[in-house]
Design a protein around this nucleic acid. Structure first.
Lengths: 307, 307
DNA sequence: ATGTTTGATACGCGGAAGGTATCAATCACC
DNA sequence: GGTGATTGATACCTTCCGCGTATCAAACAT
């Protein structure tokens, strides 16, 4: 059975005349009769009682009259929704957000987007950077707001903002009191780090700077989220570089110190799969870029290692 | 757009592989690609992001995935309901009933039918004989329970039961007291008759018997339903032949008298349009005939004038 | 009796659906 | 890093089916 059969049937059922129905369909009458006949044979049921002078619906025909209208309406709706989706007016955007990016600025952007694109359902997922990259790879996410580096090629990104990396220690740690930190201060220091499975490469810049000055801190504890990491640091389990904006809310027992000169910056980037042509996503990216325009520094070359 | 497109699209969207989808559809891969391409062009929207190694849904594709399932499910449901309708398991039966036929016996038959065919919706319409014939002609009724004669050819019928015609008078009418009625008693009597537009030909037998005996009663009042007719008679507006079963409920002021020998019988028949092949209707007729089997007298030739 | 109207039938054409062979691009694997 | 395997796209051909024209048979109108 094809929609053509239903369209033809509906015309005949409504006109109760093959001739008039054919006219309405801009079709000759013989092929119309043939199509109806074919439909009846396929369904194994007579749909019309025909004489040479009258056409009447059978029981089966009466039922199909109801059903055909439903099917055709559903098909019509499908076409309309496709067109809307293609304009980016409806659809779903699955967006991954790392905790530090879930701030007021992003909330305002989301709110503005929803005001303009009420038909686009935003599905926000609170995921760590590595998890987002994996989700992007598996096409379970349309856009990720996360930290570099990118996990695999086939990704495009745009830089949104960056925040300096600072050192987090407990209040009773010697480095909390030292007047001015130097890279070699971190030699043989125990580090409280995010586990690579949730954030990979985050510490590369820090460790490289240490290495350049001959300092070799060592991994001591791994956590899976930022708040646990800060909690462990405040409990004296070690030190760690972290992003300045993350720990702004004054946490008791925690001290944030500026790193020595040439401190790494921690960018937030928006990432999506290359070649994804989604008008809704394009619109969302426009809102994102505009929302961060006062802080973002557009760059042609990636300001950090990719991959 | 045809259902084929949606079936093909659904396979590709679910498999996310043209090759696997083609396999599932028992189809070669190139025509499948061509069909999807054609669908995309017709809708004016890309449905898949394809590389040589991966197939991903676009926003529009994701929307169509939902919609295609809906449309195909509706089509599936349509086919199933057609088959059921063709077996007479679902559908609607529009049945006309004259008031005198709306009795306990018919109610029991209707109840039994509904128990066996719960999917068939019975639409009962309280209509006079002539109205039913008109409704049958216009295909607004599937079966009529009414009185002869039939209004036009193209009708088939089955005899269900009959009841003797009796005379209705008011209690103070001379004929109410006469010991034994003769046909010539009705000469010059005013008749209270059902209007021909609601019951046509009902009085033919009575008037013919009168005429054979030289009696000529005359039409005096016309009513449009039985209860008004009996009310007028009880009020002394005239006399009328009526069906014995109609006036059983003792109405004050009304007297029913047996007619002279060779009194006409009043049949109840079930009527439908010839050539109507409706399994549900066939089943209903079976229930009807069985329900009246103790009183009906099957006959090959019509026991009354047709037309 | 004749003409008109209606659905069915016969038949031919064109286009679209489907099959086969093949290509280009990418991935896996040694 | 070259090579074979896999995947979707392309080219080309065949088949079939949807559609049009011409015509018929039946029923109604005149």
């Amino acid at each position: 059975m094809e929609l053509r059969h239903l369209r033809y049937f509906l015309a005949v059922a409504e006109e109760l005349s093959f001739r008039k129905a054919a006219e309405r369909l801009h079709l000759a009458q013989p092929p119309l009769s043939a199509q109806i006949k074919g439909l009846e044979e396929e369904l194994g049921a007579k749909l019309f009682e025909r004489t040479t002078r009258s056409v009447r619906l059978t029981q089966a025909g009466r039922v199909l009259l109801e059903e055909a209208r439903i099917v055709l309406a559903a098909a019509e709706r499908a076409e309309q929704r496709i067109r809307k989706a293609d304009l980016g007016l409806i659809g779903t955007l699955r967006i991954g957000v790392i905790r530090p990016a879930a701030n007021d600025r992003l909330a305002a952007i989301l709110r503005r987007f929803r005001d303009h694109f009420s038909g686009v359902q935003l599905i926000l997922r609170d995921l760590a950077s590595t998890e987002q990259l994996e989700a992007l790879r598996k096409d379970e996410l349309d856009l990720g707001l996360l930290r570099p580096p990118l996990g695999f090629p086939e990704l495009d990104f745009v830089f949104l903002e960056e925040s300096p990396m600072v050192l987090a220690t407990s209040t009773d740690h010697p480095l909390a009191r030292k007047r001015r930190l130097e890279w070699k201060d971190f030699d043989k220091q125990p580090l409280v780090m995010m586990h690579p499975t949730v954030q990979h490469g985050y510490y590369d810049g820090f460790l490289a700077a240490c290495a350049r000055c001959g300092a070799t801190p060592y991994p001591y504890q791994y956590t899976h989220d930022v708040s646990t990491k800060l909690w462990l640091i405040s409990a004296g389990f070690g030190i760690a570089p972290t992003t300045a904006t993350v720990a702004e809310s004054g946490r008791p027992g925690l001290v944030l110190r500026d790193l020595p000169p040439d401190r790494p910056m921690v960018p937030t980037i928006a990432v999506w799969k290359r070649g994804t042509h989604s008008p809704a996503l394009e619109s969302f990216k426009r809102f994102l870029i505009e929302g961060f325009s006062d802080v973002s520094t557009p760059s042609t070359a990636p300001p950090f290692p990719v991959g």
